[in-house]
Each structure stands twice: as C-alpha cells, then as structure tokens.
Design a protein around this nucleic acid. Structure first.
Length: 407
RNA sequence: GCGCCGAUCGGAUAGCGGCUAUUCCAGUGGACUGUAAAUCCACGGCCCAAUGGGCAUCGGGGGUUCGAGUCCCUCUCGGCGCA
C-alpha cells in the first residue's frame, strides 16, 4: 500500500508537489527515479545512489530479473531491495517495454537514424543484428512469447504471469503488463494497443487482488508484507489525443493505486500528450511518466501533472562518456577536454564535479578505466534528481515560473 | 659475401593476376528517453563545376600483361640461416 498526498499545485492546475509514502520510505514528488534494470544502477553502489545522487527510489525490470538471477533467489533474499542493499522504495517495470523492444519495435527507429544507403549495405555488428533481430518476441491477444536474450530459451509472459513475477520480486510499486508499440505504427494499430492494454489491465488487477486476498486468507499480516505491492496501470495511446484520453479514462477508472504513462511520443509535444492524460486521470493518485528523462522533458512532464520519472539516458550516456553540462551535453571523449582542468559542470555541486576534473574523467574514458563511468553516472543522475527536486521546491514556494526562467 | 623470408593508412593485419585494398586497435566526430547498450554509427590520401565525380596508393625504380599489392628484374631496409 502507498499513500499519496499533494502539498502544492501549480497555478495551471496540472503540476503538483507531494509525497508518496511506501513501505520502504517516502518519495518526495516530483521525483526522478534512477533505473537499475538488473537490480543495479549500472556502475554504482547503492550508497552512491543514496548519498551522492540523493535518489529517493529506484526502478528495476521484471523481464531481466526473471531471466537472471530468477525470482526464487530474490524471494529468499527478502525481495529486490534487500537483495541489492537498497533500503528505500522500489519499482519494477512489467516487461511490456521489453516485449516491444524484442519484437523489433526499435527497428524502425534504428533504421531511421541511419543516414545513407552506404551504411545500410554495410553488415551490422552480429552481436546486435543477428537474423533474430526484431524476432525475439511475439505478441498475441493473451500475452507475449519471448526468447531469452541470455541463452535463447523460450518464455511466456501474460498479464497474470507478469504480476505474479513482480510479486515475487517484491518491489513496492509494480506496473501492469501493457502493450507498447512504435510511434511509426498506424492509428488503428495504436487503438488496438490501447484496447489490449485495457483488457490486460483488468487481468492484472484480478491477478493482483487474488494474490493479495490469498495472503490475507492465510492470516498473513499484509501491512507488514513487502509481497503485496501497489499496482499501477499503464496508459497508452501514442501521440493521438483521443486515444490517450480513451486510455486514461479506461485505465483511470480501474482500481489502481497509481498510473504509468507509457508508449511513444512525438519529440516536440511530450508535454501536450502528457497533459491530455493528466486531465483525464483521477487527481488523487500518483502518475509516473515511463522512460522519459531529458532535462526539458522532465520540466514539461512536471508542468503537465507528472509526479515521478525514470529514464536510462543519464546512466547510459555516462557509460558512453557523455555528461550533462546544464541542459546541454558534452562528450568527455572529445579532444578538447584532454587538458581541461575544470569540473565537468561548473555549476554542479555533485561529488564528481567537486572533486574531479574534465581532463581526469577524459583520461579515464580513454584509458577505459571503469571509474569514469561511475563518476559520470553520479554526475548525470545528480543533475536530473536535483533538477526535479528544485522544481519541487519551486512549486511549493510558488516560484515555478521564476525557476523555469533560470534554466 | 651467399641463401631464404619479409616490407600494405599511426600500430597490427587480410590479400596467392580482375576492377570501390580487408579487419582490429589507436585517432576524430556523432547518437543514446519504462537498458538485447562500459554500446552503436560515421569519418579517416589528394582534387573538383561536391546528395555526385575525378586522380592517386601497397618500401624505391624498371618490366611482363588487356589488367599487378599479387608475377619477373633490380635497389634500399629489416629478420633468420650459412660462410
């Protein structure tokens, strides 16, 4: 169970600041939640995530943890948080996004990024482009059949199975199993995904309630059990206003404790699309914007009624040598940083910026020393977590516009 | 001195007569939004009326051939062996 309270609102009626109380502590919203897919924020210890980054909560992934290390050991260890030495609130994503990715949803995106025929004719890296590419998952109306990315073994997720696995993993907040599809897909296909997501949402709730009731019937003290998480429903609808609203209406009417806003967006109007959803969902439940996390997108999300965010960009970019420098990014592998003895971001107060130079971080990356990834992960996460924290303070103090103008 | 082997982009390589000379590393730049990502992509000799086209290039020189990094001769350098 969670408890969500709204402390302050933006004058536009959408944005808000509040708290989500979970069995493992309180999340002050809006909040940026670092992603730790495989029960680790890559390249970081949980102490760093807590003390250097200042994150309230983390988010892990059902598909990855189910495949490795498996739910059995997570259950025996006392759940995800205990297993990974994270005492704060935890989320798990349902695996719906992995189904999308493994089924080739990212393919068009990849080809679109490609520039010329020359590149296309060039054989791709076999590691990422086997004959299986885009053929590792298959949707049907009942669920998704997967092949393991680890050993190729076959698996199947249904809404019920996803909920069951998430119960075993034991996060505080879990997500319904949804169908996420490419922004390239037609309106008709988007509508189908919305409707399938609604049907699956109902099945998730049933499975969730059944498990919950079963525990109560056995006299288990559910208030103490970390195995009865809070289930969030997921809104789909792509970039279509009517579909977003339809999905928000259908999902919003169901007995979820909060909501995830998923699917794909147009780069230019994330805020608008999210606003349609926010206006349709019940106000008194938290909203998590799934997988969005560029600095400006966070601000737009906050303004348009989102409470929590997660995104792999900051940690992935960090491992690839890129760092936020204010709202822009720099690539520490660029030659110009070899002799730059200034901090990564002169305006940043994070551990990395206070103690290390661009030249040193650049050296670490060139030398392929893993500390580079750690230092930039700390910086990038700190930047986003604190950007959102500042937005929160600004909302509470009624100075959001002033805050925005300073960005 | 004789014999054998070798010389291909900064380094390491592929290439056994056929047309855009391969791959890896290093280099330069780009991408990254519910993580199949410590990954991926592009570029990398010169010139131009540049979404294209032209000319070069495999230690130097010469030759055979319609065609040579690939074959032949010679020189230079390096390694090994024998005197």
């Amino acid at each position: 169970m969670i408890k969500f309270d709204i402390e302050a609102r933006l004058p536009n009626g959408r944005g808000r600041a509040g708290t989500i109380q979970t069995p493992h502590g309180t999340i002050e919203t809006p909040a940026f939640i670092p992603v730790g897919t495989k029960a680790t924020i890559k390249a970081m210890t949980t102490e760093e995530v807590r003390n250097q980054v200042g994150a309230d909560a983390i988010l892990a992934n059902t598909y990855h943890l189910y495949l490795q290390p498996g739910t059995e050991i997570l259950r025996k260890a006392g759940g995800l948080g205990t297993f990974m030495n994270w005492s704060g609130p935890t989320f798990t994503d349902s695996g719906g996004f992995q189904a999308f990715s493994l089924a080739g949803g990212m393919l068009e995106h990849r080809t679109k990024i490609r520039d010329s025929k020359k590149e296309e004719s060039k054989p791709l890296n076999p590691k990422t482009s086997g004959d299986d590419l885009g053929n590792l998952a298959k949707f049907d109306d009942d669920g998704v059949s997967f092949k393991s990315i680890i050993d190729g073994s076959s698996h199947r997720f249904t809404p019920e199975r996803s909920v069951e696995i998430q119960h075993d993993i034991g996060a505080d907040i879990i997500f319904a199993f949804d169908e996420c599809i490419s922004p390239q897909e037609s309106y008709g296909r988007q509508k189908e995904a919305v409707e399938r997501t609604t049907r699956w949402a109902e099945r998730c709730i049933t499975a969730h309630t059944t498990a919950h009731t079963a525990l109560s019937d056995h006299g288990t003290d559910t208030s103490q059990s970390p195995r009865v998480p809070s289930l969030f429903g997921i809104v789909q609808g792509g970039r279509y206003e009517d579909l977003r609203k339809q999905s928000a209406r259908e999902i919003g009417a169901m007995d979820f404790e909060g909501f995830g806003i998923g699917g794909s967006f147009d780069k230019d109007d994330i805020g608008t699309a999210v606003g349609w959803v926010a206006d349709t969902l019940p106000e008194n439940k938290p909203r998590h914007l799934l997988g969005i996390g560029q600095p400006m997108d966070l601000i737009l999300g906050i303004e348009n009624g989102m409470d929590t965010f997660d995104c792999v960009a900051p940690t992935r970019m960090a491992r690839n040598g890129s760092a936020y420098d204010g709202f822009s990014t720099i690539n520490l592998l660029n030659a110009r940083f070899k002799e730059d003895l200034g901090p990564v971001d002169a305006k940043c107060a994070c551990y990395t910026c206070k103690n290390y130079t661009r030249a040193y971080v650049a050296h670490l990356f060139r030398a392929k020393e893993m500390l580079g990834a750690t230092l930039l992960s700390i910086h990038n996460l700190y930047f986003l977590v604190h950007l959102v924290k500042e937005a929160r303070v600004a909302i509470i103090e009624g100075k959001f516009e002033e805050f925005k103008s300073r960005l």
